[in-house]
Write a protein that binds this DNA or RNA. Structure first.
Lengths: 202, 202
DNA sequence: ACCTGAACACCGTTCAAGT
DNA sequence: ACCTGAACACCGTTCAAGT
């Protein structure tokens, strides 16, 4: 028994079934040990989940900027953050339940700060730019995940749109809302316009 | 005992302590009844939480557009949605745990669809506009809530920024990141630029 | 139709006792 | 130092039994 083995086994449970799937008793059974042994090594459930998140964060790839122009470099950082979130949604979900979302986003914030500095922005204006991009990326990531899920048996958004019958909404728009959104294209669209607006000011 | 009384009492528990605070046993004690009586009236815990969310949604104020120009009207709808989320964060949190975020955002989507139609947008382009604004608003709302919270004892983002010592980041920017963000100003900034970009295309 | 009580299968956590 | 066992205070849910 080592705290490393406990955390690694806990990681597996969290990865497959989320934080809810991590019970001290199930984990201890998987480790072949009494539930109380975990408390000696890593402490209570909250401490264990924090350790799981720490281990997960250490394995996350670095946020890297590529490209020559300021626009391209900011774009690449934003996409890099987005990719990270998409590839490890359980990390994001865990950070959310532990109220550690801000801390998790920190490396991305630093990378953005470096690039807006390189783009020539300074002070408050630069801070605004960093945060606007961060909120766009983070917001997209969170919404995308929660919008995709729907409870079994519930009406899809498609079905809801099919029932809308209002003369003041374009019928082609209605039909388009009924189809699933291309969130990647949507993200690029919103991001490019935001970066344009930011760089136009500098 | 009526299902109305059960749901209303459950609403109180959820409003103060979130979905976690709603236990069938605590609720039944508050109602002065055996835990199993709840099952007869409203079904299991998931059904009860769904009923709580439905009751909450019914009490939400309508999304209304004001203003004369397309820009002003889109802006007012976005702000209206944002205000709704800010004033009833527990509703949003509940929708998230029940995977019903998409359904909850539906009235806002319809209001946005009406306004982009009035602004002259049609078809796919209009759908893109609706979704981009919706994601901006929703993303801000979700991130704002989760960024404000931090686990007791954890370092603040301010403290993290104070430790950053990299020559390629503007020092005034570093200091600005250490201060709390004015999310309202940030939201207006990002929203206005997005609406500008959307209307420029039509 | 409506409610209770007993029961089952779970939880997290503490703490004295063992080696 | 490290682990177990018993115990406590909780859960959600089912189901036969009552009125």
């Amino acid at each position: 028994m080592s705290s490393e083995r406990i955390v690694e086994t806990a990681r597996g449970l969290v990865k497959t079934g989320g934080a809810d799937a991590l019970s001290m008793r199930k984990l201890s059974a998987e480790l072949g040990v009494a539930p109380t042994a975990i408390y000696w090594h890593v402490g209570d459930r909250k401490k264990l989940l924090d350790a799981v998140l720490d281990a997960e964060l250490a394995d996350l790839p670095e946020v890297r900027a590529t490209g020559a122009t300021p626009h391209a470099r900011l774009r690449s950082v934003a996409r890099s953050i987005r990719r990270q979130v998409q590839e490890a949604p359980h990390v994001q979900a865990l950070a959310l339940t532990l109220d550690r979302s801000a801390a998790v986003s920190f490396p991305g914030q630093v990378a953005l700060a470096r690039e807006v500095t390189a783009a020539g922005l300074r002070g408050e204006e630069a801070a605004k730019a960093v945060r606007a991009i961060l909120f766009l990326v983070g917001g997209f990531a969170m919404l995308e995940g929660s919008f995709r899920k729907r409870p079994p048996g519930a009406r899809t958004t498609q079905e809801l749109w099919a029932e809308v019958d209002q003369g003041d909404i374009d019928p082609v728009l209605l039909a388009a809302m009924g189809r699933p959104a291309d969130t990647d294209a949507l993200f690029t669209y919103a991001l490019d316009h935001l970066i344009d607006a930011i760089l136009r000011r500098s």
